[in-house]
Design a protein around this nucleic acid. Structure first.
Lengths: 183, 183
DNA sequence: TTCTATTTACCTATCAATAGATAGATTGTA
DNA sequence: TACAATCTATCTATTGATAGGTAAATAGAA
């Protein structure tokens, strides 16, 4: 009623982050909202469209929140802590892994455009971290470090989800900031 | 013919690692072998049984290979390099991410026993690395470091798969060994 | 050895459930 | 009147799963 599209996206994000793109159906989402599956198709003609809207919204929210969390971060270390915090909030607030972590894993089974949009999310992540690391490091070093940090965050979310222990996420990332220049 | 079960497991592992558990069907596997889907059920009554056999075989192969790769590893650093190499081979040889990385992501949508078996794989990984790190570090430090290393390896595989660039895996893990005591 | 019983490794045929998707009506609001 | 937001009804394809059949191999007893 209020905003069916948003309720739909909420339900879909929740379901996809929990079980994966292929394990989620239009009917299931419709049932959750108390509407019919045909009405879901009214907003998202094809499942791929729903997926794209999902990633679009997720990425936008993510990078917005990232900027908020990094607003007062001066040093590279503080900036890296900010992205760690952003990932952590995503995990803790919903007890679910990253939407793009899930879709990235399923990548080879997704419609091409969706898979591509997901990979853009990762590229954006790496670019952000690489930039955050500043120019104390060589370009090569910054790039390697950025890739590692994003990989660790994603892997930590996945494993914490599998083990059903969020503490595992904190353990996994506890040493990340230590290796980043305090400027 | 030769060994239908093994051919079935090969086809299934390939398909699941590429697209996820729910995106793989009995008929598809049967078609690939030139048999009927009913015959797949003959070997694996339920899809869950297939999944369990898949993880069982994967874990066994993985840890066997890990021991081979670590056979001549003396220092913690060398042992960590051995597990990195084991992960790398798994990725490069098939251009696919880890079976358990995929299933771990889908965890909440899997039959309970299967999800549990997958989490055991991760626990085994962390235990191995933690032990490999030796006693130069405190138990707490070794545990944190082990969690981080496994998370990084898993995340790196996933992101490399999503970006379709295996070089991303190497970049992501290039700094792992540097932080491990050379004894 | 020969006959019989059992098992293995498939098959055909079919099920109910669910999937994504579409056409075309209906309802409410502006 | 016109449009947005839903519905009903239905389609075709696919899913995991099962019942029951069959040819060939194997094992055991006579």
């Amino acid at each position: 009623m209020v905003d069916t599209v948003e309720r739909l996206l909420n339900a879909a994000e929740n379901a996809v982050r929990a079980r994966g793109f292929h394990a989620v159906s239009f009917r299931e989402l419709a049932d959750e909202l108390g509407i019919k599956s045909a009405s879901v198709h009214y907003y998202f003609r094809h499942k791929e469209d729903l997926g794209l809207a999902l990633v679009e919204r997720y990425a936008e929210k993510f990078f917005t929140q990232l900027e908020v969390n990094a607003a007062n971060a001066g040093t590279p270390k503080e900036k890296v802590e900010a992205i760690c915090q952003t990932y952590r909030d995503a995990l803790i607030s919903s007890d679910q892994m990253c939407l793009c972590g899930m879709l990235g894993a399923e990548s080879n089974g997704l419609p091409a455009k969706l898979a591509q949009r997901v990979s853009r999310f990762f590229e954006g992540n790496v670019r952000w971290v690489s930039h955050a690391l500043g120019d104390t490091l060589s370009e090569r070093e910054a790039d390697d470090k950025a890739h590692r940090i994003v990989a660790t965050l994603q892997g930590a979310m996945m494993i914490a989800t599998s083990l059903k222990r969020n503490a595992v996420f904190d353990q996994s990332i506890s040493l990340i900031a230590a290796g980043v220049p305090d400027e």
